[in-house]
């Protein structure tokens, strides 16, 4: 090989080395666009339904019992709006980081196809994480607008519920991503994870009612749930809920650490799958 030839070879990989993850994101966006109809309908329909069911329906029962302004000093709708935004974000993440990951490795192994190009295993992971972050941010922003239009997010800092929800989604999603990437056969593991992990972490996380309403033995589940940390953080920015500063810092740290740890783990697992 001449040195000129070597230089040419190096040059061919400069752009993929720098922007490879973004190219993977582009791919996911292209596929997402194919299902634009159902995606947009869900993004707009779901918050309206939440408003109708929880804000109005359940709100009547709660407010009748607790009196208006009885929940954490605000109306029921205001209390749950940040939590609902975070819940929707988590739902998207748990959809994107489960079956599609197995599909890309096994049923329709496009990740293997990507890796045959200059794209590295890390970039395959980064590209999907980036895509999910974008999708969650865009969707929760729509939620936020609709909730805000109905008075669900009164504080000026309310728009911060969107990045909070994105962090919550990643804290929930990247560990799931790492787990999904380890699976070689589908034996219903996702159904189990959904039922015994995702569901309790969602239900016992102080979204529809304060965590303290639960019996003491169920409350620790909430402490471990990214959704509880995300919902509480959302309440601080959504209506200025009064929480100790240290607790708010713990919420934020919990989400960031979990998201980064899951992400790192996913890269490791994916390297094992694609570079073995």
């Amino acid at each position: 090989m001449s040195s000129e030839d070597r230089l040419e070879l190096r040059r061919a990989a400069v752009r993929p080395r720098a922007f490879g993850a973004w190219y993977v994101t582009e791919h996911h966006v292209r596929i997402w666009r194919r299902y634009l109809g159902v995606n947009v309908a869900t993004a707009i329909g779901t918050p309206f339904m939440f408003l109708l069911a929880f804000g109005i329906g359940l709100g009547l029962l709660v407010n009748a019992n607790a009196g208006p302004g009885g929940v954490d000093g605000v109306s029921y709708l205001v209390f749950i709006a940040p939590a609902l935004i975070a819940t929707s974000a988590v739902t998207i993440a748990s959809d994107e980081f489960s079956y599609p990951v197995m599909q890309g490795l096994k049923w329709n192994p496009i990740y293997i196809g990507m890796h045959a190009t200059p794209i590295t295993a890390r970039q395959v992971v980064d590209g999907l994480v980036l895509f999910v972050a974008l999708r969650v941010t865009a969707t929760t922003f729509v939620y936020f607008l609709i909730m805000a239009a109905f008075g669900g997010v009164p504080a000026a800092s309310g728009v911060l519920t969107v990045p909070v929800a994105t962090f919550t989604a990643l804290a929930f999603g990247t560990p799931l991503f790492a787990y999904a990437a380890t699976l070689r056969e589908d034996r219903g593991q996702f159904a189990v994870v959904q039922r015994v992990l995702v569901l309790p972490l969602t239900l016992f996380s102080g979204t529809l009612f304060p965590l303290e309403q639960l019996p003491a033995f169920l409350q620790p589940i909430g402490w471990l749930s990214p959704l509880w940390h995300g919902a509480e953080l959302g309440r601080v920015v959504g209506y200025g809920a009064e929480r100790p500063l240290w607790l708010t810092a713990v919420h934020l740290a919990f989400l960031v650490v979990l998201a980064l740890a899951g992400w790192r783990l996913a890269v490791r697992v994916m390297r094992g799958r694609l570079d073995a």
């Binding site: 709660v62 569901l199 239900l203 016992f204 009612f209 309403q213 169920l218």
Partner: peptide, 20 residues
């Protein structure tokens, strides 16, 4: 695990939300 799904709902909504 299929059995636990409604039980979790019942614990969360029946007990937690119910107290409310």
């Amino acid at each position: 695990s299929g059995f636990f799904e409604p039980v979790f709902y019942l614990l969360s909504l029946g007990v937690g939300l119910g107290a409310f």
